[in-house]
C-alpha cells in the first residue's frame, strides 16, 4: 500500500509540469538569485551608504550622487563613455557591415576567411589589448616606425600621452575587437536572404546600391537592431581595454564610468562611491534593453507571427 501510494506520488510529481519545472529551475535560479539579483540590490544599497573597504557604512541617502553631480571627473567619464560608445559603435557597424557583405560574396576559402576573421573576438581582450599597448608604445611603436619610414610623419606619435591621441587609440582598439562580432552576426543574417530577390531586382534593372538599399537593408534591420544593442551595451560597460591600455589616463582623459568606478572603489577604497558610479550606468543600459525589446517586436511583426 505504502509503496504504491509513494509510487503514484512520484508519478504525479513526474507528470506535474509545475512541480518538476520548479525543481529543474532550482540550480540556475539559486545561483542567479544569490550572485546576480542580490548583488544588484546590494549595489544599489551600497550607493546610498558611505561604505569604505574594511568599514561597514551607514545610510546617507543620495549624498554620493550629490557629490558625483559636482564631480568634474565623473562628468568627464560620462561624456567619455558616451563618446567612446557612439564613435566605436558607428564604426563597428559600418565596417562590420562592409566586411559581412564582402564575406557574403562568392569568394575562395570562404569558411577559412570567416574563421580567421573571428579571432580578435575569441582571444582574451586583455591579452590583445596588451598587444595594442605594445604597438602604441611611445618609443618603439611599429605604427610610428612605419609612418616615419614612409615619410608621412617626421616624429613618433605620442599615442597614449596626449588626451585626444589616447582617446582615438582606445577607440581604434575597441573597433578592432568589435568588428568580427558584428560582421559574423550580420553575415548569418545575410545568408537567410533568398537569392531570388536579388535576381528579380537585377532583371528589373536595379543597381547594386538599389539592391542593397531596398532588399538587403530592410531584411537585415531586425538583426542589425539586436546586434547593435549588444554591441552598444558591451561597449558602454567596457572595462578591460581601457584598464590595460591607459588606466584612464592621461589625466582621466580616457576614464569610462566602469574604470572610474573600479578606480574609486578598489584601489581608492571608496566602495560606496564606486557602487554609485556603477549604478549611474543602469539608466543607459535600460534604454539599450528597451531598444532591443522593440527590435525583437518588430522582427516578430515582420515575420507575421503573433508570438
Amino acid at each position: 500500500m505504502a509503496k504504491s501510494s509513494s509510487q503514484s506520488l512520484l508519478d504525479r510529481f513526474n507528470n506535474s509540469a509545475n512541480a518538476l519545472g520548479l525543481v529543474f529551475m532550482l540550480p540556475a535560479a539559486a545561483i542567479l538569485l544569490v550572485f546576480l539579483t542580490y548583488p544588484l540590490g546590494l549595489g544599489l544599497w551600497l550607493g546610498l551608504t558611505d561604505t569604505k573597504i574594511g568599514r561597514p557604512g551607514v545610510f546617507i541617502g543620495l549624498e554620493n550622487y550629490r557629490s558625483l553631480f559636482n564631480d568634474s571627473v565623473f562628468w568627464l567619464s560620462v561624456f567619455n563613455t558616451i563618446g567612446y560608445t557612439a564613435v566605436a559603435s558607428v564604426f563597428k557597424f559600418v565596417l562590420g557591415l562592409i566586411l559581412a557583405l564582402l564575406l557574403n560574396q562568392n569568394i575562395a576559402l570562404k569558411s577559412f576567411m570567416r574563421a580567421i576573421i573571428l579571432l580578435p573576438w575569441i582571444v582574451p581582450t586583455t591579452l590583445s589589448a596588451i598587444a595594442f599597448w605594445w604597438m602604441y608604445d611611445s618609443q618603439f611603436s611599429i605604427i610610428s616606425w612605419v609612418l616615419v619610414k614612409a615619410g608621412l610623419i617626421d616624429h613618433y606619435i605620442d599615442f597614449l600621452g596626449d588626451r585626444w591621441n589616447a582617446r582615438i587609440s582606445v577607440v581604434v582598439a575597441n573597433i578592432w575587437r568589435g568588428i568580427p562580432f558584428v560582421a559574423i552576426s550580420l553575415l548569418a543574417g545575410l545568408q537567410t536572404i533568398s537569392p531570388s530577390l536579388y535576381e528579380a531586382a537585377t532583371i528589373d534593372g536595379a543597381t547594386p546600391w538599389q539592391r542593397f538599399r531596398f532588399i538587403t537593408y530592410p531584411l537585415l534591420t531586425p538583426i542589425i537592431a539586436i546586434v547593435m544593442t549588444f554591441s552598444v551595451l558591451f561597449t558602454f560597460t567596457d572595462f578591460q581595454l581601457i584598464y590595460v591600455i591607459t588606466r584612464g589616463g592621461p589625466v582621466n582623459a580616457t576614464h569610462l564610468m566602469a574604470t572610474l568606478s573600479f578606480q574609486r572603489a578598489i584601489p581608492g577604497g571608496q566602495l560606496a562611491e564606486g557602487a554609485a558610479i556603477a549604478m549611474a550606468m543602469v539608466p543607459f543600459l535600460i534604454a539599450a534593453i528597451l531598444i532591443s525589446f522593440f527590435g525583437l517586436q518588430r522582427r516578430a511583426w515582420q515575420q507575421g507571427s503573433k508570438d
Partner: peptide, 28 residues
C-alpha cells in the same frame, strides 16, 4: 510550467547585466 515565459525573459535580462556593475557588491 506556470510563468515559464516570464522566467525565460528574465534569463534574457540577466544576460544583459554587465559584470562591471556587479563587481563591487560581489567583492563585498
Amino acid at each position: 510550467f506556470k510563468g515559464s515565459r516570464w522566467i525565460g525573459l528574465s534569463i534574457y535580462g540577466a544576460y544583459l547585466v554587465p559584470p562591471s556593475i556587479l563587481f563591487i557588491p560581489l567583492a563585498t
